[in-house]
Amino acid sequence: MAVVSAVLATTHHPFFYRETELTPPERRRPEAAEWKRKVEAYRETLTAARPDLLVMVGADHFHQLFYDNYPTFLIGKQPRYDATWHNEERYFGLPTFVLDGHEDLSGHLLQGLMDRGFDFAVSHELKLDHSITCAILAVRPEGDLPIVPIYTNIFAPPLARPARFYALGQAIRDVIEAYPGDQRVAVIGTGHLSLEIGGPRQFQETAPDLEFDRRAVEWLADGDIDAILENVTPQVLEAAGNATDGFLDLVLMLGVAGRGKAHHADHLELFQTTEAFFTWYPQGDPR
């Protein structure tokens, strides 16, 4: 059966590429070099796991999915995926990609998750956004591995509860481990710590709620799902910033990782939001 060789949970800061690559060195923020170093160190944690396939967890930001029909959970099942929308090129300077898919694993996950009580929507014409491409740029910029994208709704309330996200992560792990073959699958998910978009606390010199961020980083590094489920309610997320619901995808990733401390845990307090990087190796640390 396939194995989960690495689980990566990280924030996605869409300005990373612009701040560290597109901006000329003399105009970069002072923290740009450290930011890049941390991302490159994070990239090595994926490389060390020697993945054959990537299951990517993200969330569409009203690029393709909208309130006319916004699914709570959706999986892509395609031979290839276009990625990066026009407005992401315009705003973030993100490059476009065409990424190979893995239809067989998509189909296996769709069926397996349905069988475990997760009633997924499926798309056969999904164009990916920066919730996926930021992770590709960070940990696999070659974009050379087939992917299976899973989208969750962390964006258009009402949202599923934190415990449901965690349970979905557990189910994703189980279903991958029941996939016939000997593939090494890395599961990579992106979300947010405290974040404000389009509100009075946006684009400050730090995240809107550093206290939340520091607690969240500790919970994630320790794999402490009990503390998360005890402390994180929709009201707590809302108080930390209007876009903090992205934390739910990090909770999902903790479900994939299982209990236990992260093998790699790092973070960096930046303008607008705090970046955080976690990797678990369910098969043991290969480094």
């Binding site: 009203f62 407005n87 315009r90 705003y91 258009a156 978009i197 389009g198 509100g199 209007n242 876009a243």
Partner: peptide, 20 residues
């Protein structure tokens, strides 16, 4: 728009797109 409950993401995107 914020006070009427328009979603903050497309609101910001549109205004940034016009003025940034």
């Amino acid at each position: 728009l914020f006070e009427l409950g328009a979603h903050w993401f497309p609101t910001l995107q549109v205004f940034v797109g016009m003025h940034e």
